[in-house]
Amino acid sequence: MSSDAELIGRSLRGDTDAFVEVVSRHESAIGGYLARRVGRQTAEDVLGDVWVAAYASRASYDRSYPGARPWLYGVALNRLRQHWRSEPAEDPAPDVARMASGWDPWPAVDTRVDAQASLRTALARLRPEEREVLSLVAWEDLTVAEAGRVLDIPAGTARRLLHQARKSLREAPEVAALLQVPTT
């Protein structure tokens, strides 16, 4: 079976089906990633944009990496950043309330952790890049090095960020309490 890198190479030579094959291999993972970050509805809205952006920028793909999934996560993250910045109004009132609040929005996360407000509080105190690495490792099952590749940072930096994130979470009183009490 051809590697993702080989398929991307073929797509650069005009074989568009090859790129669709890459997409087919990773669409479930990327779809799940998007849904975890912005909810299913918005994930469905932006998924096509992710593929189009990936296709448009495939020439920049480093084909020394056989697997393209971390790269696709990076494309998806960039698309989400765009979405968070430009989220149009769907319901007038909350739109204005969110107007300038895009410093590091985690709307979907907030939704899911409402039942565990303590963990949400602790997560909110993490630095954005710490949360990115933490979520990529915890939710997407990436290695730390792969998370670094998604975020275009060295593996050592990603490792440090993950360490800091986990340490901060552990030391947060809210999380310490959660760790002592069984959660359901």
Binding site: G31, A35, R36, S135, R166, L169, R170, L179
Partner: peptide, 18 residues
Amino acid sequence: MDEMDLMKKLRDVPSPGP
């Protein structure tokens, strides 16, 4: 259970439809 387990509990969400 550690903090990573707590995070994983937040992983499951409705995925995009077919």
